[in-house]
Design a protein around this nucleic acid. Structure first.
Length: 437
RNA sequence: GUGGCUGUAGCUCAGUUGGCCAGAGCAUCGCGUUGUGGUCGCGAGGGUCGCGGGUUCGAGCCCCGUCAGCCACCCCA
């Protein structure tokens, strides 16, 4: 074969496409029932839209090109800058609250590895223009609502919640210079993933004071708000932050998802622009990278050249999620195999035209119905019905009584149980929905 | 971008110290006597052994390169 799928990309054959659709459909369903509206943006944007937020180095991680008009463009590696751009353009006319979601296809020019490809889908859920923690609660609830929707229990996955301002405060209290805080946060984000020795090495390499870092490390190890409070010793400037965090956890509990959520101050997130609560969804065993991540990013709209507007939200990729669902055996039967409601069979000569009528009628009524292209014996057609994953096989027969015009009847066989009913009048069957199993 | 491991049919793999025509299971398709699937039996299709070069009388097996996959680093929006 001369051509294959490009490095880090996937071909979606029907069996894989079923999985993708299962995930994307659930994302949409859950978003809508949580009151979010869908938006989308172009698949490529001006390169600058992405570099302004993340720096020029990011260009190396992007698929970018120059068009014939000399415009420097890039395929989107994320949709948040586009969201910021769209919201900024109409900020004064958009109805509030702005609760939006999207399922963009994204590309990043990174080296593929487990759970990470060059092309993927990512569910984005954001609330813009709401300052209070209730917006964060909404996003976290939506994430958990999805986990439940795809049958991931609190034993399978959890949301670990951290708080950027507290970490920053602990660094400030320890005397960390302001210009070093960003680097310190980046390093703290890595702490759970590296050994103590490596952490110290990285710290000295970044020119960070160990003692100052230690204060934040102590905070990271706190398991409860009470512990944090004791550690931070009731400093005034953090009282409000602590109250917010306490209230956030309480509301998550009230909304019935407390078992999925745990405070974890080691969650910092790599990105510079987070300004409040941050969180990541992990599989409990934590054998995979994060399934989702997000938090509050109140400055981003301004950075992208828009008005000042607070924002919070998260992203969830399809790749890690797909691996997790597969590993946990959570994929429904009809995702693993195709599903058909009816497979209609011509049971004897002269019934094929009736088959077409019945198939058409079933389809019109919303059932997935199909039939064999080959006119062959019932056994072969039954086998095809089975292969196609049909729930029911319907065999059309002809009955003639005396001089009466011939009448068609059907035998209906449940292919899962083997149960069969015969002599069903086709007219009655199609007219009475109750007869349809 | 860097490093390690791997690369034989759609999938999972066998393939003896390099030696005649490259194998199995699963999957796919066909057949199993005018007829009710899944099980079972028989059969077929499908591979220039990732690709390119080299060593050799001879390479799936050895060497080099390249591409891809996996894993780790960088990064993680």
């Amino acid at each position: 074969m001369k051509f294959k799928a490009v490095k880090g990309t996937r071909d979606f054959y029907p069996d894989v496409m079923r999985l993708r659709n299962y995930i994307v459909d659930a994302w949409r369903r859950v978003s809508l029932r949580n009151g979010f509206e869908e938006y989308d943006a172009p698949i490529f944007e001006y390169l600058d839209l992405f570099t302004i937020k993340s720096g020029d180095e990011i260009a190396e991680q992007l698929f970018h090109f120059t068009d014939r008009g000399g415009r420097r463009l890039a395929i989107r590696p994320e949709i948040t800058p586009s969201l910021a751009r769209m919201v900024a353009a109409k900020i004064n006319t958009l109805p509030r609250p702005i609760k939006w979601f999207s399922v963009p296809r994204l590309c990043r020019a990174e080296n593929p590895q487990k759970g990470r490809l060059r092309e993927f889908f990512q569910w984005n859920v954001d609330i813009i223009g709401v300052d209070g923690i209730q917006a964060d609660v909404e996003c976290i609830f939506t994430a958990v609502d999805f986990l439940r929707e795809v049958k991931l229990t609190a034993d399978d996955a959890c949301v670990r919640i951290g708080c950027r301002p507290l970490t920053v405060a602990s660094l400030e209290m320890a005397g960390m210079p302001e210009d070093k805080i960003e680097a310190a946060l980046a390093l703290l984000d890595k702490r759970p993933k590296v050994t103590a020795e490596v952490f110290i090495k990285l710290a000295t390499a970044a020119g960070l004071d160990e003692k100052q870092l230690a204060a934040a490390c102590a905070l990271q190890d706190c398991k409860s708000i009470k512990e944090i409070q004791e550690l931070m010793d009731g400093r005034e400037n953090i009282a409000g932050i602590l109250d917010d965090l306490r209230e956030l956890m309480k509301r998550l509990e009230q909304m019935g998802i407390g078992d999925y959520c745990q405070l974890d101050m080691s969650i910092v997130r790599g990105l510079a622009y987070y300004t409040g609560v941050v969180y990541e969804v992990f599989d409990r065993k934590q054998s995979l990278r994060a399934v989702a991540g997000g938090g509050r990013y109140d400055k981003l709209l301004e950075i992208v050249g828009g008005p000042a507007a607070s924002a919070t939200g998260f992203g969830m990729g399809d790749v890690v999620l797909g691996i997790l669902l597969d590993e946990k055996g959570k994929l429904p039967e009809d995702v693993l195999a195709g599903m058909l409601d009816f497979f209609v069979i011509d049971g004897e000569d002269g019934t094929f035209e009736k088959v077409l009528e019945v198939v058409a009628a079933l389809r019109t009524r919303g059932y997935a119905a199909d039939y064999s292209f080959k006119r062959q014996n019932i056994g072969k057609q039954m086998r095809e019905a089975n292969r196609r994953g049909a729930r029911l096989a319907m065999i059309i027969k002809k009955e003639q009584q005396g001089d009466q015009p011939e009448e068609f009847t059907a035998s209906l066989k449940n292919l899962l149980t083997g149960e069969q009913r015969d002599g069903i009048s086709i007219t009655d069957f199609l007219n009475q929905p109750t007869l349809i199993p």
